[in-house]
Design a protein around this nucleic acid. Structure first.
Lengths: 169, 169
DNA sequence: TCGTATAAGTTTCGATATGAAACTAATAAG
DNA sequence: CTTATTAGTTTCATATCGAAACTTATACGA
């Protein structure tokens, strides 16, 4: 523990770790009230500007800005509607659809902790049975919680400093 | 389709569904840049005000506000540090720790889509092997994607209108 | 084909949120 | 008993948000 002036060494390594962590960039793109609700709307089948606007109650200028950012970020695709060329279709592409576990995990967390009373349950189309609760699994399928985790270097070595500082990044 | 003045009936049922969906409330609490980054910091072992402030580069007044909201929301706990009573310890409680799948899913998504180059891998402490990619599973463990999903009423009936409109909520 | 409606924005402008910096109160350390 | 540290709060300039009016392109109906 060398005597730095500003911060403890733990914060230093936290900041260093943050540079390689994708979460800040992700949060910049979708970690914002409307961006996330637009995404949820898209998963719900909303497609047109007016649908998002009316459905979410978002201001038109903000919606315009957010849709632009989600398109620029490669999450939504913007295409003219072939049936009616006044309309524009916004749809999830692969990168957007890949956010499904995030959206569902957040919904399940909200359900579990009593934020709203859900009246419908997300189910498998095949057998109409509820989906499993999303959780973290080991390579062989055991459920893991925070205290079962560690960090491993790309070369397979374990770095004990990071282990302490960067529990989950 | 009856001639409503404002919106198509699909948007109406979307809004109705939104009332029972926990996601808006969840987003209100943690769907915001700093709230989410504070949470990530907490998972990383940050505990004190100055650690969050220095580690995240957040303004002190905003940090103060967000920590207060996370505590009020039951995600973080605030306790005086018994070792040094100038300090305050902020720690995740059960409700907060239960957000682990959300944080990890978001990180994995960012990794998969090239937002930052991760240098460490999240692994199971027991065998030091990387954790599985988080995904949605059916009750019997088959991976599901967006198009395998449907909605089911609490009484087991399937509502076809909702099935179309509320794919994921 | 002319008038009207609709879709997807953009503009404007007042209200709200953010952030940097200085300030404060309580506790610790020398 | 003086100085440093911790966790805030206050202040004020700036940036973002949001409601409402406006714009442009396309469709629709008589």
């Amino acid at each position: 523990m060398s005597g730095t002036t500003e911060h403890s060494p733990e914060i230093g390594s936290f900041r260093e770790a943050a540079l390689s962590c994708p979460i800040p960039a992700v949060v910049e793109l979708i970690g914002e009230k409307w961006a996330f609700l637009i995404l949820r709307g898209a998963f719900n089948g909303l497609q047109h500007f007016e649908e998002f606007q009316g459905g979410l109650g978002i201001a038109r200028n903000i919606l315009s800005d957010r849709l632009g950012k989600l398109v620029a970020g490669g999450i939504l695709e913007r295409a003219p509607d072939p049936q009616d060329r006044r309309k524009v279709v916004y749809s999830l592409n692969e990168k957007g659809e890949d956010l499904l576990p995030v959206v569902v995990a957040l919904r399940q967390w909200g359900e579990r902790w009593g934020m709203g009373v859900p009246r419908v349950i997300l189910a498998d189309n095949r057998d109409k049975r509820a989906v499993r609760r999303i959780c973290l699994l080991s390579h062989d399928g055991r459920p893991l919680d925070l205290h079962d985790l560690t960090w491993v270097d790309s070369d397979g070595e374990i770095d004990p400093v990071r282990l302490a500082v960067e529990q989950v990044g």
